Simulated assay, not measured.
Amino acid sequence: MTINNLIEELLLFSDKIITLKAPVSEESIIAFERNHNIKLPKDYIELVRKINGLSLMGTIIYGVGEETWEFSLDKNYKLEHEEVANPMYDYLIPFSPDGGGNHYCFDTRYIDDDSCNVIFWQHDYPYTVDDPPEITNPSLTEWIKEVVIDWTLEDYNYDGSEKFKPNT
C-alpha cells in the first residue's frame, strides 16, 4: 500500500469525522530537519506534501510547521525532548499522541526503503538498552492503515455513523 492509496481511502471519510490539513511547503520540511538535526522518513514527507496532518475520530498525525495547528510536529518534538520528566531519545520523532501522554514515534536510527519502524513511547516508563520501546509497525503506511483507518472502521462507517454490533 502506498501513501497515495491511503490518502484515497482517507478521503472516503466524511468531513464530519476527519480534518485534513493543507500541504506543507518544502521550506518547512527542510527547516524541521535542520532545526532538529534529524531526517524525516520519506513516507511521512510524501504524506505531509499532500496532507500536512490529520485528525480522524481522535487519532491525530502531527503536521510540520509551527503554524499548522496545535498538533505540530515541531512543537511536540521540542516538548517531548526538552520539557518532560522522561525525555525521548533524540532519534525518536513523536508524530501521533495516544491521548494519555504517550506517542507513536518514528525510530530514525534505521530508515530503510524510505521508511522506518514506528514505536510506541510510554511517557512514564524507564526504557533501557535491554528494554527498549515496542515496535508497533514496520512503516508509517502500515501504521496508518492499521491504526488510523482499520481501527476507525471497526466501530464507524466512512460517514461517521456507528456500526451496529449485535449483543454477544
Rank of each mutant, 00 (worst) to 15 (best):
M1D: 14
I3N: 05
I3M: 09
N5T: 13
L6N: 05
L6Q: 03
L6T: 00
E9S: 06
L11G: 03
F13M: 12
T19H: 07
T19E: 13
L20R: 06
K21T: 13
A22G: 04
A22N: 12
V24C: 12
E27L: 09
I29D: 01
I30Y: 07
E33H: 11
R34K: 13
N35D: 12
N35E: 11
I38G: 01
I38K: 01
K39A: 15
K39S: 14
L40M: 09
L40P: 13
P41F: 12
P41D: 14
P41I: 08
Y44G: 03
E46Y: 11
E46K: 12
K50E: 15
K50D: 15
L54T: 00
L54Q: 07
S55T: 14
L56W: 03
M57R: 08
M57K: 07
T59A: 04
T59M: 07
I60P: 10
G63V: 09
V64Q: 02
V64Y: 08
E66C: 08
E67L: 06
W69C: 14
L73E: 03
D74E: 03
K75R: 13
K75S: 14
N76I: 09
K78T: 12
K78H: 11
E82D: 14
E83S: 09
A85M: 11
M88G: 00
Y89V: 05
D90L: 10
D90W: 04
I93H: 06
F95W: 06
G101S: 05
G101P: 12
H103E: 02
Y104L: 01
R109I: 06
R109S: 02
Y110N: 15
D112C: 01
D113I: 01
D114M: 04
S115H: 00
C116L: 08
C116D: 00
Y125G: 05
P126H: 06
P126S: 08
P126R: 03
P133G: 03
E134L: 09
I135G: 04
T136E: 15
N137H: 15
L140H: 03
E142V: 07
E146F: 13
V147Q: 12
I149L: 08
D150V: 05
D150G: 02
T152P: 09
L153T: 01
D155L: 12
Y156F: 12
N157S: 06
Y158W: 09
D159S: 04
E162V: 11
K163E: 11
K163M: 10
K163S: 05
F164S: 11
P166V: 14
